[in-house]
Simulated assay, not measured.
Amino acid sequence: MMKSIATESPISFEAALQELERLVQTLETGNLPLEESLAAYERGMALLKFCQETLACAEQRIRILSGEELTPLASKEADAP
């Protein structure tokens, strides 16, 4: 039996991503009872939302730092004389 699904907010993007990966692996086995599968799915959706919001905030910060315009990162070859 799987231990209870966490309900608190993750401490970081990386922690959320790791937890989400573990949940996906657990769900893919197909060995969970229905109620535990639903709880894991619900937690996964909450983690996904957290990750998407975190990435959106990071993108916004980058936009602000780069003067409101996202520019593609230059390759190392383009930087060479």
Score class of each variant (00 low, 15 high):
Ala39Cys: 05
Ala80Lys: 06
Leu32Gly: 02
Thr54Glu: 09
Phe50Pro: 01
Leu55Met: 06
Leu17Glu: 15
Ser12Phe: 03
Glu68Leu: 11
Thr7Gln: 15
Ser37Met: 09
Glu59Asn: 03
Met45Leu: 11
Glu19Trp: 06
Glu68Asn: 08
Glu14Trp: 09
Leu23Asn: 15
Cys57Phe: 13
Gly30Leu: 10
Leu38Val: 07
Ser75Ala: 13
Leu73Trp: 02
Gln60Gly: 03
Gln52Val: 09
Pro10Val: 11
Glu14Thr: 12
Tyr41Trp: 12
Thr71Glu: 03
Thr26Met: 09
Glu77Gly: 01
Thr29Ala: 06
Leu55Gly: 04
Ala15Val: 11
Ala39Met: 13
Glu69Cys: 11
Glu77Ile: 11
Leu20Asp: 12
Leu20Ser: 15
Leu70His: 04
Leu70Ala: 07
Glu35Arg: 11
Ala46Tyr: 01
Met45Tyr: 12
Arg61Gln: 11
Arg61Asp: 04
Ser75Asp: 06
Gly67Leu: 07
Leu20Gln: 13
Glu35Ile: 13
Ser12His: 05
Gln18Thr: 01
Thr26Trp: 03
Ile11Ala: 15
Asp79Leu: 11
Leu48Cys: 11
Leu34Ala: 09
Ser12Leu: 01
Pro10Ala: 09
Ile62Thr: 14
Leu47Asn: 02
Thr7Trp: 04
Leu20Arg: 14
Val24Asp: 09
Glu77His: 03
Phe50Gln: 04
Val24Tyr: 05
Glu59Asp: 00
Ser66Leu: 07
Leu73Ile: 10
Val24Ile: 15
Glu53Arg: 07
Thr71Cys: 05
Ala6Phe: 15
Lys49Val: 05
Glu59Phe: 02
Pro81Val: 04
Asn31Lys: 12
Ala16Asn: 03
Glu59Trp: 03
Thr71Ala: 07
Asn31Ile: 14
Asp79Ser: 06
Glu69Ile: 08
Thr71Trp: 00
Leu32Val: 04
Gly44Cys: 04
Leu27Lys: 10
Glu35Phe: 04
Glu35Lys: 06
Glu69Tyr: 07
Gly44Leu: 10
Leu55Val: 12
Ile62Met: 08
Lys76Ser: 07
Glu35Leu: 07
Ala46Cys: 09
Ala74Ser: 03
Leu70Gln: 01
Glu35Ala: 10
Thr7Ala: 14
Ile62Leu: 15
Ala39Val: 06
Leu55Thr: 07
